[in-house]
Amino acid sequence: MVKVTIDGIEIEVEEGTTILNAARQVGGDIVPPAMCYYSKLEGSGGKCRTCLVEVAAGSERDPRPMPKLMVSCSTQVQHGMVVKNLTSDRVKEARAGVTEFLLANHPLDCPVCDQAGECHLQDLGFENGKEGTRFEEDKRTFAPRDIGDKIKLHMNRCILCYRCVYTANQLTNKRVHGVLNRGDHAEISTYIEKALDNEFIGNVIDVCPVGALTDKTFRFKSRVWFLKPMNAHRDCPTCQGIATVWMFGNEIQRVTGRKDAYGEIETHNGKTAWLCNTCRFESKDVAQWTIEGPRVINRHSVISQGHYVLKNPLEDKNTVKNLK
């Protein structure tokens, strides 16, 4: 075990733990936001840079501070390391910068986005963003596309976290979508018209931190905060059948995996409870499920805190253009 101090809180964690996971063991506000890292996806992390923290002391043996901010999701703790997250002005400034970058080309079309209310970018913007944007250029735009008959891709909203690519690599045997082009032209795509139809491919919707990949079978009859999330399970030959069903009255409008405080699919029976497509897309009848009871959304998201505030998206000229 190694001892590490994060924002003044001391904790002992196993050797090899990342700063982010150490912080998650403490929990609460000191946990850095993570838009690309996903503990269940090997190789994820390092890209979004929202989880940057300051390492004020490298270790007991070498207590020098690290000159650069470090990505907490991919930096392992050392015995005696001192980390500053909320208590570091450098971190706050860098994170505000990253937030501004991530929002620069984002359409801010929350009023018409399925993910509104459970979007990590919305949370990030709320907690770290500054009022108004200084980005006055034309935003890059892509037309929304169906990738198969179950999944819709709104590339405008994508933050290129690569989670969906890792998901396809690690959960399915033949990946058909990926990241094409490079720089700020990079996009998630299948290149030529192709359907994502692997049995587990629906999980890309659950891992997507924003509303870039959405469930076409959820015809958002209502906003998520009007829906009642319920824990439910069913006997499924393909997956564990452990899900959250989102109900409006007695109707199941949408099925998702069960997510923990950090938006990650929970582990059940020692395995990540990834949902299969049948459970997700084709089991919308209440009779198909055993409803366990209401699910408490314990994430510090904008919906759970009831402070869902639109940042005047309608005043943004690009938003209006993108409303379809």
């Binding site: 390092g46 890209k47 979004c48 840079r49 929202t50 910068g97 990253v98 970058f101 991530l102 620069a104 080309n105 980005f135 250029e137 933050i159 290129l160 690569y162 990241v179 082009n181 490079r182 720089g183 700020d184 032209h185 990079a186």
Partner: peptide, 15 residues
Amino acid sequence: ESCGQCSPCREGTGW
């Protein structure tokens, strides 16, 4: 020439 992996470079260089 940015590979586009990390957000400060991808968005910042274009900006």
